[in-house]
Simulated assay, not measured.
Amino acid sequence: MPSSDVILERMMSLHPKVIDLTLDRVHRLLAALGHPERALPPVIHIAGTNGKGSTQAMIRAGLEASGGWVHAYTSPHLARFHERIRLAGELISEPALAALLDECVAANGPEEITFFEITTCAAFLAFARTPADFTLLEVGLGGRLDATNVVEKPRLTIITPVSVDHQQYLGETLPEIAGEKAGILKRGIPCVVGPQSPEGLEVIEARAARLGVPLLAHGQHWQVWTERGRLVFQDETGLLDLPLPNLPGPHQIQNAGAALAALRHLGKDEAACEAAVTRAFWPARMQRLRQ
């Protein structure tokens, strides 16, 4: 069998000439593959402009510390494509990845499909076939029409801070972009909302109200701050006094807050919450290379 690099290169030739955000191609391929998206371990779906990867890394650290097996899907990759697909805690192996990609290319045939769409379908196939306790899905672009947004009933959704990005696809204004991110909300499924601008929050709250989505919003249902070199988190369950995040940068405080709100909602204890902030690993993001 050809290597994953060769197959990934071949996939680029199927790419439509213009990016048109739609879920039609993803639904078509998933149907051909036997609907793996319906057989995923419980899904936590993360959208937003900033902090998606860090928030996901912290949630994963917390879930794994409490004994859970966790799938994780993230993009883009830094060095090797395999970084995008983590199966029950381990990066996908080269033989497994090559076989999956080959299977997806065969199922897709000559039909147009974007690189992200077909590789997302491959990730779903891997996740559906490997037992785990949770599946963490990071949105690639936007939310509403992102290839990851085909899971009908996630366990939880998360929207990290929204700012202006990818305007050619998502809209010119912050409320338009927030509307696209809020496209991951599902009827009745709770959503953790990180710090937002007032106009962004208004859009998210309006969509949540229409869909009967219980929000766990920063500033209303939870707070996070630093005090005397510690991270303090407070929600309706009470106060957590934790070490500062091991991921560097002041922005990691708010990311930690969203991760902690998610873990608390899932019923995880203080030890899991502490592991989330002390054990998360997110290489090459503000990583110190030498003293």
Score class of each variant (00 low, 15 high):
Ala96Trp: 09
His218Met: 12
Lys17Thr: 15
Phe134Cys: 12
Ile189Trp: 02
Asp5Gly: 14
Tyr169His: 13
Val203Tyr: 06
Phe134Gln: 09
Leu23Glu: 02
Tyr73Arg: 01
Ala280Val: 02
Met58Ile: 03
Gly200Glu: 04
Cys104Leu: 13
Glu236Met: 15
Gly171Ser: 05
Asp20Leu: 07
Phe134Lys: 10
Thr157Asp: 09
Gly229Trp: 05
Leu100Phe: 14
Phe81Met: 05
Leu156Thr: 01
Pro95Phe: 05
Leu21Gln: 01
Gly143Pro: 00
Arg285Ala: 00
Ala128Glu: 01
His35Asp: 10
Ile204Tyr: 03
Ile44Tyr: 07
Thr119Glu: 01
Thr130Glu: 09
Leu247Gln: 02
Gly142Glu: 02
Lys181Phe: 02
Tyr73Ala: 02
Ala96Ile: 15
Leu137Ile: 09
Ser163His: 14
Pro110Gly: 11
Gln168Ala: 12
Asp269Trp: 11
Val193Tyr: 01
Leu137Thr: 09
Glu138Ala: 07
Ala208Thr: 03
Phe115Arg: 08
Arg285Phe: 04
Leu215Thr: 04
His45Phe: 06
His251Lys: 08
Leu97Arg: 05
Glu172Phe: 09
Ile85Tyr: 02
Leu29Met: 12
Ala96Asp: 15
Gln287Pro: 06
Gly48Asn: 07
Ile46Asp: 04
Asp146Lys: 02
Gly267Ala: 10
Ala256Lys: 00
Glu90Ser: 12
Ile59Trp: 02
Leu8Tyr: 03
Asp24His: 11
Ala147His: 06
Glu202Phe: 13
Glu236Asp: 12
Ile44Arg: 09
Gly200Ser: 05
Gly62Ile: 05
Glu172Ile: 14
Ala72Tyr: 00
Gly34Asn: 06
Phe127Tyr: 05
Val105Glu: 13
Val277Met: 06
Ala122Thr: 03
Ala32Gln: 10
Leu125Tyr: 14
Leu23Tyr: 01
Leu87Cys: 11
Leu247Arg: 07
Ile253Leu: 11
Ala88Ile: 07
Ala128Gly: 04
Asp235Ser: 09
Leu33Glu: 08
Gly179Pro: 03
Ala79Gly: 09
Leu125Val: 12
Pro198Arg: 06
Lys186Cys: 04
His251Phe: 11
Phe233Gly: 03
Ala31Met: 12
Ile92Pro: 04
Ala123Asn: 02
Lys153Val: 12
Gln220Phe: 12
Cys191Ile: 05
Phe233Tyr: 09
Ser75Thr: 05
Ser13Lys: 12
Thr49Met: 10
Ser4Lys: 10
Tyr73Pro: 00
Leu141Ile: 06
Glu64Pro: 00
Asn50Pro: 15
Thr119Phe: 01
Gln167Thr: 14
